[in-house]
Every structure is written in structure tokens, then in C-alpha cells.
């Protein structure tokens, strides 16, 4: 079995500082693996345990993202593919889907499963996964809580939805978008981290993919950001430093929550 795992390097959003022009202060902002992708990796490792699958991890980003791929190899993935070219910069979800799906077709044409995180914490779009599935013309399962079973080319998975859990079966090849779950992700062992430093990362460029420059990056993106702004806040909060419980109690009576 062959698994393509798609990951994204994102700025640590819990830690973002903004300039007055609403651009991100880049200095001191750490790049991390998108947290949802860690759970996709967990599911990939689960499939690997069940079937002895080989995991190839794909990411699109600058050359520095190779370090992240090595980190994921240290956690149990087998190979890393870095889709990197200055011409890919500014891609929206459509252009990203096109670039990543083309790379998977080139590098791992006989894949059985593609795993992605459900969201990336920087964009929160949850779109790239389904875009890749559509471009590769394979079924998709979104909101995957966990993979239950793999048997005779069919994956059984549990989806966590707003109104309950769905158990679904899908024939491979298929793409699954994985949610965060309750369990603690695996931590890399020091030996594996050292070993992973020597692993070779395959770099894929626009030329390798055989796409046209106008099909990728900003030019290949139907959408663009026309304006960015910080959300407004209201500043009419009445603050009390003492008698908290009494103050709330009185207010609850006033607004009719307590009779």
C-alpha cells in the first residue's frame, strides 16, 4: 500500500503579532507543522501498522520546508517530496490543489490513499484536500475522526459531524481529510531524528511538473485578497474589580435571566 500524506508549514497562529498595516510581523514567528496534519500523519502511521504501507509526505513551500519533511520522516514517514518553486508563490486553494495533485501524479502515480489535515490553521479553508481529490478524480472523505479498517482495497472510517458520527466505506484510491482527535500525537525518538537528517528530500519544481507558469502561483489562482483588516472590537465594557458575584447576580436579574 502507498500513502501520500500532504502537510503544510504554517506560522504559529497562537503567537502572531501584527503591524499597523495588517501584515504579519515575520520576525520571531515560528513555523510549525499544521496541527491537523499531525493527526493525518497519525492515521497514516496507523495504516502503516495495519498494512506495512509506505508513506510519502508531500509539502509545497520554500526550500526551508525540507526540515519539516525530515521531522515527519523522524516520526515514521518514509520519503519526503518538496514541491518548491518561486513561481508557486501566492497560490490560492485552486492553484495549490492543481500543483499538489500534479506532483502526486508524477511522483506517486500508484498511490492508494491520500491523507490531509481537515484544515490548515492559517487559512482555515478546508478546500485544498477536496480540490486535490477532484483533480485526481478520486472519492473523498472529509471530517475523518479515525480510520477503522482497511480490507480488500476498502477503507472504513469514522466521520465526526455536527450531528453525529458517520461510519463510511470507500474504495481506494481515495483522499481522506483528518480532524484533530483526542489522543496524544507520537513524539519522535532522538535516534530517529538524527537518522532523518540524512534522508534525501526529492525537490519538485515547475519544470518537473510540466505545468505552464500561468497555471500556478498567483497567475493560476482565480482568487486574490483585495483587502485585509483587523476585526473591530467594542470598548464599552463596564469593569468591576470587587463584588464580582454580586455584580453578576444583579445584572442577571436586570436582563431577566434570573427572576
Amino acid at each position: 500500500m502507498k500513502i501520500a500524506l500532504c502537510v503544510k508549514q504554517v506560522p504559529d497562529t497562537t503567537d502572531i503579532k501584527w503591524t499597523e498595516n495588517n501584515t504579519m510581523k515575520r520576525e520571531g514567528v515560528e513555523s510549525i507543522i499544521n496541527p491537523y496534519d499531525i493527526y493525518a500523519l497519525e492515521q497514516a502511521l496507523k495504516l502503516k501498522k495495519m498494512t506495512g504501507a509506505e508513506i510519502t509526505v508531500f509539502t509545497m513551500g520554500p526550500l526551508q520546508a525540507a526540515d519539516m519533511l525530515k521531522e515527519i520522516i523522524a516520526l515514521g514517514a518514509d520519503k519526503g517530496v518538496l514541491i518548491s518553486d518561486k513561481k508557486f508563490a501566492g497560490s490560492d486553494t485552486y492553484a495549490t490543489g492543481k500543483t499538489v495533485s500534479t506532483a502526486i501524479k508524477k511522483v506517486l502515480p500508484d498511490f492508494d490513499v491520500i491523507l490531509c489535515g481537515q484544515f490548515a490553521v492559517d487559512g482555515d479553508t478546508a478546500q485544498t484536500g477536496p480540490c486535490i481529490a477532484n483533480m485526481l478524480n478520486i472519492p473523498q472523505i472529509t471530517y475523518v475522526k479515525e480510520i477503522n479498517e482497511f480490507e480488500q482495497g476498502t477503507i472504513t472510517a469514522t466521520r465526526l459531524l455536527d450531528d453525529g458520527l458517520e461510519i463510511v466505506k470507500v474504495k481506494t484510491p481515495a483522499l481522506l481529510c483528518v480532524l484533530k482527535s483526542e489522543f496524544e500525537p507520537t513524539r519522535a525518538k532522538i535516534n530517529d531524528i538524527i537518522k532523518a537528517q540524512d534522508s534525501e528530500i526529492q525537490v519538485v519544481t515547475l519544470e518537473t511538473l510540466g505545468l505552464l507558469p500561468e497555471e500556478v502561483g498567483i497567475k493560476g489562482s482565480p482568487t486574490c485578497v483585495s483587502k485585509a483588516f483587523r476585526p473591530e472590537v467594542k470598548h464599552n465594557c463596564e469593569k468591576f474589580f470587587e463584588n464580582g458575584a454580586e455584580t453578576i447576580f444583579a445584572k442577571l436579574k436586570e436582563i431577566g435571566v434570573v427572576k
Binding site: 485552486y94 479553508t125 478546508a126 478546500q127 484536500g129 482568487t223
Partner: peptide
């Protein structure tokens, strides 16, 4: 919704167009 966010990117991608996810404001410029 769960269904909308599963369906919409598939449709936009098949139509080779863009999609803006989870909007909280819409207007015509």
C-alpha cells in the same frame, strides 16, 4: 455546513474557479 464544506470545493475545482470559504460578509463591489 459539514456538507457544504465537503461539496463546495469539489464543485469549484470542477468548474476551474475560485471559492471563498466560511464567509461572514458578502457584498458587490
Amino acid at each position: 455546513t459539514n456538507q457544504g464544506r465537503d461539496l463546495a470545493p469539489r464543485v469549484s475545482s470542477a468548474l476551474h474557479t475560485g471559492l471563498t470559504a466560511d464567509c461572514i460578509g458578502l457584498d458587490i463591489n
